[in-house]
Design a protein around this nucleic acid. Sequence first.
DNA 1: CAGCAGAATCGAATCGGTTCGATGAAGCGC
DNA 2: GCGCTTCATCGAACCGATTCGATTCTGCTG
Lengths: 351, 351
Amino acid sequence: MNIGEIAKRAGVSRSTVSYALSGKRPVSEDTRRRIQQVVDELGYRPSASARALANGRTSTIGLVFPPAGNHYTGMQLDFIGSVVEAAAAYDYDVLLSPSGVDSDRSFQRLLGERRVDGAILMEIRLADDRVDHLADLGFPSVAIGRTGDPEGGWWVGLDHTALVAACVHHLADLGHRKVAFVNRPEQLLHAGYESAHRGLDGFTKAAAERGLTVETYCCGDDAASGQACLEQILHDDPATTALVTLNEAALGGLYRGLSEAGRHVPRDFSVTGVVAGRWAETVTPQLTAADVPAAEMGRLAVELLVERLDHPDVAPRHHLLVPPISLRASTGPANSTSSDGSRPASGSLPG
Amino acid sequence: MNIGEIAKRAGVSRSTVSYALSGKRPVSEDTRRRIQQVVDELGYRPSASARALANGRTSTIGLVFPPAGNHYTGMQLDFIGSVVEAAAAYDYDVLLSPSGVDSDRSFQRLLGERRVDGAILMEIRLADDRVDHLADLGFPSVAIGRTGDPEGGWWVGLDHTALVAACVHHLADLGHRKVAFVNRPEQLLHAGYESAHRGLDGFTKAAAERGLTVETYCCGDDAASGQACLEQILHDDPATTALVTLNEAALGGLYRGLSEAGRHVPRDFSVTGVVAGRWAETVTPQLTAADVPAAEMGRLAVELLVERLDHPDVAPRHHLLVPPISLRASTGPANSTSSDGSRPASGSLPG
DNA sequence: CAGCAGAATCGAATCGGTTCGATGAAGCGC
DNA sequence: GCGCTTCATCGAACCGATTCGATTCTGCTG
């Protein structure tokens, strides 16, 4: 059922059918109706491949994220979901590409074979050859995250430095003096993942500013690693009374470690960090944290990309988000005795 | 940089370049090398659209799942990840389509515009018009889940009936007499989601078989709903000592509800159900559950689909999985006094 | 009524590949 | 040296749309 078939049945030429459907040239009301009727009867829809070949646009955007390998986090899930939904609203499909680096076969397919009009990149590294490569090519893309040199780029990012610093200040304000930092896995830190680096920076600086005693850890993206990491923390310094984490997937393990060590949260130990809100609420007590607005970020990334696709020469834009810390129930004053089990009030701190 | 450019530079015809690259006809070693060199120099890759138009295959499979709307579960995340990875191994890309029903615009695009060679459907309903429609069309697809009439279809499913029944028997063996069932949201049950229906069936039958007193609940896919649901359970019958759940996203809330009601798991209350293993391990105590092998299911679905694409006339196949219950730490004997806080052994029960 | 503007439609080229049948050259036996 | 096979390559058609320039038809003006 191709356009020629429609044309024949409607008694017009193929080009007239095309114009009738696209509206790019006027067609008499009469023939337009006749064509539409044939189209409806046969349930005709133009072939995406043929259309893409003819006008050079695939109406597809690529979503590039590292291969699962080990584990996906809930945050990534929220990104994917919101990107797909936002893209659908603009009539774009989303093609998934599991690529961590520029040289991946899957990444080459996306670009080299021109399968997509533009791309959204996740899990950005400070030095990211994918971002550099796309920038050199002038290929329309938007990063979810910032490289080390984000100027003049298209991205939507989270200010991990400020967010983690806010967590530290929150803990310091509560009187904590010995605080641990639980980062993403060591391998990701070494690879230069921006959240791991900027988060660590924010932690170190804010802790120094407040004169805290700190230790930093890398932790695998799963519950077992979280539990092991917490044991290590208490082993290294049993007087530690709080931690800040970026590691969503390890959160359950950290909680378990605390519970097995007999430390009650938040009476004996405070936990906070940067985590997608939906996941912060699944643990008990609910996590006081900077909620990653993953859905919003995905939506913003699509909006930027669509704008870039529609107006190829518009100047680069970005969004740097600094969500406030949501006060839930996992942090409390340090040095409180077991008799002082009072809950902090719920609410929201300006970010 | 198209195939004509390569042909010109290598001093051959376009068809020779095509044959040299595809190997579908012999090409002399000499010219093959010359062509390859030009290709490498220019970094040429054939256009996916043109190739798809010419040979009718897009090398893309569609992954159809309901729109996020409210929430994704961890299980879905694992499906998506494993499907993408498995597809990449067979040189297929994955196109995401957020479609719950046959009439969705996104679903129409996938099929009508021939964007994909085949499709994998998630979140199957007992009466699923998407499945029926694709079967009528003879369009290559594989369902992750079974409809009410799975005979002669292509699918990989989980035996929710047996799984939930095994959970019930496990609890009954431990001496529990009053057990609650926490299902997926009511709206999904009404829509006919297979896991919700078959799980409920398995629960009801096994409970009757063992003469248990039961109550069943629907629960929203989030922690707050889980907590509310648990309050309702204890309100309806404070003597309830165990629950079985299919609702992964509510799990954290269920635990919180128990903890706030002062019921210790597993001493006072046992929890079990059907949940992706990775998520069962994030809660404390770790959940004794039938672990959904999401990654394996995604991989199997891709394998079935690829086989179907390669051999269009092969007879329908399927995989019905019945993973064993992993004994972790969330279930224990009923009616134990608070002095009997002994932990059950870890291990695995034959499914 | 010739001439012309404007609207509606058509025909052909194009996008970038694949594939089929034809052609030419080389190698071989007799 | 002729005919035959085999191998390598070429040219053209085709996939199914879009798009540009040309054409036809109508109605209006002078």
